[in-house]
């Protein structure tokens, strides 16, 4: 069974916020809610890196543990979803989540919390696939169409990866291996640090004389 995961490659992310925009547009999320955000660390300083973060669809999700009404469930694809009909908007998942994924539309007096909204991995909700109710509450259900989340699909640098965890980790592993030059640029000796695969050039020369 495929297990769906996001992975964001900070070496590739260019902080264009296209994933945020794409998500907001595709899922028509409520005002004041962003299911995905790009965070830049050391902005303007050496070592600046950006990361796009949303719900990480944890295998053992803290939000699901603390929910007082038990509205979370994990799909067969390993996507963590929640039932907005059951959610009471208490905010406990927001306190427990390591990634700040649960968002609350400002609802009621003094901006008390409405029903929680978070990234669904473009997998909709508990309602029937592609039903109007599902779209209204959770946004689009691309997984049911055999598509992957739009944020990752449209990432221009392919920094944000989404899909089967096995494939994602393979892709990322290959990138790491092929990053010898980037490692060299960090002041570590080429010989010691390069993971560049050997090219089998032993004994070869441009001239034999």
């Amino acid at each position: 069974m495929a297990r769906m995961k996001f992975y964001c490659d900070p070496e590739r992310c260019i902080e264009c916020n296209a994933c945020v925009t794409a998500c907001k547009n595709e899922n028509e999320v409520p005002w004041g809610v962003n299911r995905r955000r790009v965070v830049t660390i050391k902005d303007g300083d050496p070592g600046e890196r950006s990361l796009s973060v949303a719900c990480m669809h944890c295998s053992d999700a803290p939000c699901a543990t603390v929910c007082p009404v038990d509205c979370f469930y994990t799909t067969q694809d390993g996507v963590v979803l929640h039932d907005k009909d059951i959610c009471i908007g208490c905010g406990y998942c927001f306190y427990a989540c390591p990634f700040g994924a649960p968002q609350f539309p400002e609802d009621g007096a003094f901006a008390t919390r409405g029903k929680m909204d978070k990234c669904t991995f473009c997998a909709g909700g508990p309602e029937a696939d592609h039903s109007a109710d599902e779209h209204r509450k959770y946004g689009s259900n691309r997984l049911a169409e055999g598509k992957l989340p739009l944020c990752a699909e449209m990432c221009s640098t392919k920094a944000l990866l989404a899909g089967d965890a096995d494939v994602i980790s393979d892709v990322y592993r290959k990138r790491i291996i092929n990053r010898g030059a980037a490692v060299l640029a960090r002041g570590v000796s080429f010989q010691d640090a390069s993971f560049r695969a050997p090219s089998n050039l032993g004994g070869k020369s441009s001239s034999q004389e």
């Binding site: 945020v20 004041g32 955000r37 965070v39 830049t40 973060v53 990634f99 700040g100």
Partner: peptide, 14 residues
């Protein structure tokens, strides 16, 4: 960190 998304502690990744 710095982020374009407003809200409570949106700049904090973990």
């Amino acid at each position: 960190g710095k982020t374009q998304v407003g809200g409570v502690e949106t700049g904090v990744l973990i």
